[in-house]
Simulated scan of single mutants.
Amino acid sequence: MEYRNSQLFKLLDYPRGDTSSGRKLFEEISKLGLKELSFVSKGYRGVVFKGNWNGIPVAVKVPRSDSKKKNVVEKECEILKYLDEKLNEKNPAPKPYFCGNRFIVMEWIEGLPFKEAFKRFGKEVVLKALESVYLLDETKVEHSEIKGEKHLIFDGRIRIIDFESAKFKDKPRNLLQFVGYHLLRSTELLNMLKIDKEKLLELLELYKENPSKVFPEIVSFLLKFRKKVDTLK
């Protein structure tokens, strides 16, 4: 147990690995009533742990000890709070439960990565992903890492995690990034969806100028091809 705690304290102060600093942060987190803290993953700016808070699984993010940017978790929490207030039950981002200056406690999202979900459930997953990234565009929040496979999680709808690089932007490019990296660059998906690539590119150009008007057209375009594929089954 002592060895396991020591490893946990080092991870709480990753990558410096100062057990004394990690222990102090652990004590702060524990004061909230969080239990069963365990390491999950490391990012460019933060480290994520899973915990139990009054019987509810939660994600706990702390900044890396070598992060050169100040207020990393505060900025992410500001965006998470904003999305929660603006989108309510439609919000694809994790719900924030506690925001401190040294860590965030937020909703734990369990599900399948986008590509795996697509292989298992098909075209509906693409449409659900489009809805989620469009919601971010509507609220003027750019995730910045939509191209990352691990950031899109399917749990009945597409959830989007890891907002540490997110920012407010007048013309966010979440939908454009999603389509560019997950559809246009994936021969597998394009072939399975039977999509007219040139027409999709035309719609994306129009979307840049008028997202709210063109988004329904993109959905209708993909639905048309989905139905065409279904009739061939």
Rank of each mutant, 00 (worst) to 15 (best):
V125G: 00
E124M: 07
N210E: 15
S67W: 08
L32R: 13
F103I: 07
L203M: 04
V73Y: 02
L127Y: 09
K208F: 01
S220Y: 14
G22M: 13
P92C: 10
K42Q: 14
R23V: 10
K123A: 14
K24Q: 13
K128A: 12
S41H: 11
F225C: 06
S6G: 10
M192W: 00
V62S: 06
K81H: 12
V72Q: 07
G22K: 10
E145Y: 08
E124T: 10
P94L: 08
L223Y: 14
E124N: 09
F26N: 08
K199Q: 10
E110H: 11
L83P: 03
E116C: 00
F178V: 01
V58H: 05
A166D: 08
F9E: 07
E188W: 06
M192R: 02
N210F: 01
P63Q: 08
K10F: 06
Y97F: 14
S6W: 02
L223W: 14
K233N: 12
V58T: 06
K50S: 14
P15W: 05
S6A: 10
E78N: 13
S132Q: 04
I109H: 03
S30H: 09
K31L: 13
S165L: 14
F178M: 00
R226E: 15
K150E: 03
S38D: 12
N210I: 02
S21I: 11
L136C: 07
S21P: 03
S186F: 02
S220C: 14
H151E: 11
E198N: 09
R157I: 07
G55M: 10
Y207N: 03
R173M: 09
A59S: 14
R120M: 01
